[in-house]
């Protein structure tokens, strides 16, 4: 055994010295100057309320189904009639709000799951409606959008998974 082997403890800092140095570390710094500008740019985008998101999806489904019912009903609807008005309303809804919320707006696993389930329900209803009217282009468009939204949600859920919630989200 060498002299160095016999005194490793002596060369190691003691706990109180480590605590003193840790306590003395800087706790508050000047905020990064450019960061606020970047944050401001990101939050300036209009927030997409979750309730509106679900409401819009539901409204779109109801409008789509109503359109189908009107088109297959006993009384033909004129091209300038209610169906056209409804179509215009639906288009206006699309223009008034983005087609899907940003992932950061609904990025908690629970919110993402809820959005996914809402969207899944909408897809099922659209598919059902399309069985009655396979050539309805508006319904097909809705279905395509809903499926794309679903793909984005699945991706967001995948990105937001943590070891804690992976077990509860078997997608």
């Amino acid at each position: 055994m060498t002299p160095n082997d016999s005194r490793p403890e002596n060369s190691v800092m003691d706990d109180s010295e480590l605590d003193r140095r840790l306590d003395a570390l800087t706790r508050i710094a000047e905020p990064p100057p450019d960061n606020w500008t970047a944050i401001e740019r990101r939050i300036r985008k209009r927030r997409w309320p979750k309730a509106l998101s679900a409401g819009l999806a539901a409204a779109a489904v109801v409008a789509g189904i109503a359109l189908v019912v009107l088109q297959i009903g006993p009384t033909p609807v004129s091209s300038g009639g209610l169906a056209e008005t409804m179509k215009a309303e639906v288009q206006a809804m699309r223009v008034a709000a983005p087609e899907t919320p940003a992932a950061s707006d609904i990025d908690s696993p629970a919110s993402l799951m809820a959005a996914w389930q809402d969207n899944q329900q909408a897809i099922a209803q659209l598919e059902q409606a399309l069985e009655h009217d396979p050539d309805n282009r508006l319904l097909l468009e809705f279905l395509t959008e809903a499926r794309m939204r679903q793909a984005r949600l699945v991706r967001s859920i995948g990105l937001n998974q943590t070891p804690n919630n992976e077990r509860s989200m078997n997608l």
Partner: peptide, 8 residues
């Protein structure tokens, strides 16, 4: 108020 503390 909070960014400086969080940054460290």
């Amino acid at each position: 108020a909070h960014a400086g503390r969080l940054m460290t």
